[in-house]
Design a protein around this nucleic acid. Sequence first.
DNA 1: GATAATCGTTATTAATCATACCAAATAGTC
DNA 2: GACTATTTGGTATGATTAATAACGATTATC
Lengths: 171, 171
Amino acid sequence: MTGSRAAELNASKPGNAREVVDDHEEASQIKMGELSELLGYSLKRAQLRIFDDFIRCVASLNLTPAQFSVLLLIDRNPGRNQTEIANTLGILRPNFVAMLDSLEGRELCVRVRSANDRRSHILMLTDNGRTILARAKKLVATKHEARLNEVLGPANRAALLEMLATIARDF
Amino acid sequence: MTGSRAAELNASKPGNAREVVDDHEEASQIKMGELSELLGYSLKRAQLRIFDDFIRCVASLNLTPAQFSVLLLIDRNPGRNQTEIANTLGILRPNFVAMLDSLEGRELCVRVRSANDRRSHILMLTDNGRTILARAKKLVATKHEARLNEVLGPANRAALLEMLATIARDF
DNA sequence: GATAATCGTTATTAATCATACCAAATAGTC
DNA sequence: GACTATTTGGTATGATTAATAACGATTATC
């Protein structure tokens, strides 16, 4: 299901029998040039790694980052409708339908017709949804974010988070 | 073809014997909850913003971030073939074909049969490609990255870059 | 009461990402 | 040299995500 996208990120694995030289010269490393100074590039690569790790850490619950964020937001904001949740996550309403179909099909959340405005659907987690979310949070905290703290250190992790929020806010 | 099977899943859930919830408190802001502590979430949002700004800054040249990185890498590594360039960028070879078709069609680069290995295509920029790349670099530096320096400050920008590289490397 | 706006939804397209496979060329082995 | 395996670029094809237009039902506005 979840393809290993990092399969060929590392072409030069110092492992077994990969000493092939394409030209007469030794297999020299490709120069990244200004690419390593391009923030967008590093940003995307880091994001892919983080998402891969997230999916791996939470694989037992079969939750994507997007699904996790939806459950989190519904839990924290009971009584909101689809457009409100979708908008705050940057998901377009048409694309949110299938996503909710899936989550509701797994009985993690429900759509309830609002009494105030019978057009809109109020979203709320089921008991099962709350259980799964709680488990997911624990997995994310103990595996995913913990690893980040190992690699970056708590102070750096906080600084990184703040800078990313700044970009998303002021850009 | 596309097979949007969203319709078949749970398009309609009739007979919802759920009770209606109180949804007062109209204009209050949605709470992000633990979402603002989730690094992957901030990372993705920031990445989308950065990419949008990149595309905007370089719109006059009609270059995507991916295309720009390809041109940059070819320029810095003359004599490399498709798989080498694609691999270092994390692009799968089948998907790299169309991308090169496009760039070559715009006469920004060329594929040249290698004399050493007649299977492989050596990539190199055309004069036009070098010109466009130079212009793109200038736009990126004076508009895109400059704005980042405004928002973050040079020191923070460097620290951010270093942390992202750390994630992409050690994760 | 007529008209406009909103909500969830369907349908559809484009773009991105991934896998399986093929012909040509090369490498490695006997 | 012949035989096999591997590599390279390429095609075809799916899955997933993202974006737009439009529609019925409902609500808001005038």
